[in-house]
Design a protein around this nucleic acid. Sequence first.
DNA 1: CGCGGCGTTGACTCAACTCAATATCGGTGG
DNA 2: CCACCGATATTGAGTTGAGTCAACGCCGCG
Lengths: 256, 256
Amino acid sequence: MDGAILDMRLDRAYRDVFDPQEAEFLARIQGDVQVLGPRQRLVRANVPLKQSFYLTRGFIGRTRVDRAGRRQFLALQIPGDYVDLPAFVLHSLDHDLYSISEIAVRPVQHTDLTALRDSEPELFQKLWRISMIDAAIHRYWIYRIGRLSGRTRIANFFCEMLVRLHSRGLGGLHAFPLPLTQTDVAEVCGITAVHANRLIAELRAEGTCAFGNGEVAVSDPLALFRAGQFTWDYLYLPAEKDAELRAALGLGRGRC
Amino acid sequence: MDGAILDMRLDRAYRDVFDPQEAEFLARIQGDVQVLGPRQRLVRANVPLKQSFYLTRGFIGRTRVDRAGRRQFLALQIPGDYVDLPAFVLHSLDHDLYSISEIAVRPVQHTDLTALRDSEPELFQKLWRISMIDAAIHRYWIYRIGRLSGRTRIANFFCEMLVRLHSRGLGGLHAFPLPLTQTDVAEVCGITAVHANRLIAELRAEGTCAFGNGEVAVSDPLALFRAGQFTWDYLYLPAEKDAELRAALGLGRGRC
DNA sequence: CGCGGCGTTGACTCAACTCAATATCGGTGG
DNA sequence: CCACCGATATTGAGTTGAGTCAACGCCGCG
C-alpha cells in the first residue's frame, strides 16, 4: 500500500520539475522502500556513503551537536525531498541525519547517479538544482536565526513548513502536520526549549497559531506570515505553485 | 599584472581538485577580469542572470535584509571561490551579492556551463561539488549562530576564515587578511555592532586574537580554535591540505 | 577645516537563559 | 486496575548575555 501512495506523491511533488519520462527514470533507479522508526540515526557524520535517499514519508532532520551536547537542527527534510544529494558529490557528510517521525525512504545508488550524469545530463542538472534549493533554504535559516527575534523565528519557521508542505500537497493552509516536539522546534530556531515553550504559548494565546500533537493549526495564514515576517521567494516555487498559493491567500501581484 | 597573479591563484587554489586539463578548460571559458570597487552591489536579488563569476581578488558577501533594514550576511566568498554557481541552476538569486573590498571577477557564461555539462560531465560534477561545499558552510553558519555564544561565534568565524584562506595560500596561521568592518563581523555573527565591538575587545584583551585594519592577528592559532570551539571537518579540505594544516598546528591524528 | 565612516565606551533595558519544580499523558508491569 | 516511569509540556523566580540609545574619539579625505 505504501508504494502506491508514495509514487503518487512523487508524481505530484515534482510534476512541474520533471517531465513524465524523467520521473520514470528517477523512479526506476530508486530501490525498495525502507522503513525506519522515529528518532533513529539514518546517516552518521564522516562515514563514506554509497547511496542517497528519496524520502517518501515522514520527516528527517540534519543535526550538529556542540561541545556541551546541545543540538542544532541544520535542516529539515519533508516527504518528496531528495535527501542527501550532498552525499553523492561530497562522499560523506559532516553531520548526522535522524528520522523524526517514522520514515520511509527509497535508496538511490551513487553509481546510478553517475550513470545518469552521463546519459541524462539535463536531468542530472535538475538534481543539482534541487540541492541548490536546499542550499537557499540553508541561507534563509541563517537569516532567520541571525536576525529575527525568538517569537518571529518560530512563526517564520512554521510559515516555511506550511508553504513547503502545501506545495507538495501534504498540508493545508489552515492546518499541516509537523511531527516535532517543542524541544525540536527550539533546536531548529536556536533557542532553549523552555523559552520556545513560552513563545509557542504566546503565539497560541494571541491566536496566531497553535502547535501541538504533531500539527500546526492556523486560523489566519496571512496573520501568521505577518507575525513571522515571512516571504517564500527563497523556496523557488514553480510559477504555478506560487500563483496558486498567492491566490489561496488572497494576495495580488505585490509582495507578501 | 592582475591577470598573472590571478591565474597563479587559480592554479594553486584548485590544484588538488581539478587536473591541469580541467583547470585549462575552466580558465578558457572565463571572460576578462572585471574590477569592482568596494561596497558595490554585484548581483541583485530576483533578477535573471546569464553569467556567474569566478572571484580572483577581494571578498564578496551574500546578504539579506530584514523588514527593519538590518542586514545579515549569509555567506562570505574569498578569492578562488566560484561565486554564484547557484545562479546557474537557479536562474536568479533570492539575495544580493556585494563586494566588500575591491574585487576582481571573471565572468562565466551560463551557456558555456551548459556546454561543459554535455562535453565534460565529470568536470561538471566537480562544480556541483564546489557548490555543495558552500552549502556545507551554510549549514555550519546555522550551527554557529544557533548554538554558540557571541564571543565563541566571533572566534569561530575567524577560525573559518583562517582555514579557508590558508588552504588557498592567501593567509598565514598567525595573520590573515579580513577586509571587514566590525559591523560586518556583527552582521556575519548575528549580533549587534556594539556588542561585537565589546567581544572583539575582549578577545584582544585576553590575547586570543586581534582584529583591525582588515587583518586578524593570531599569536596562538590553537588557542583561537579552542576559544571558537572550531573544527574544520565541514570544509572538506583535500586530504593533503588537511594533513598540512594539522602538521602546521602541531596536531596528531585525533580531533582538534 | 569639517564631514562621514568607523571604533569605543557608558548606562540602562530586556529578551533569553538557567535552574528547578510541577503537570500531563501514554505505556508498561505487577 | 493501579502504581510507576519516561518523555514532553508548563510555570515560576532569578540571572545574564545581548540589545538600545547616546555620546565621544579617531582619522582619512575632500
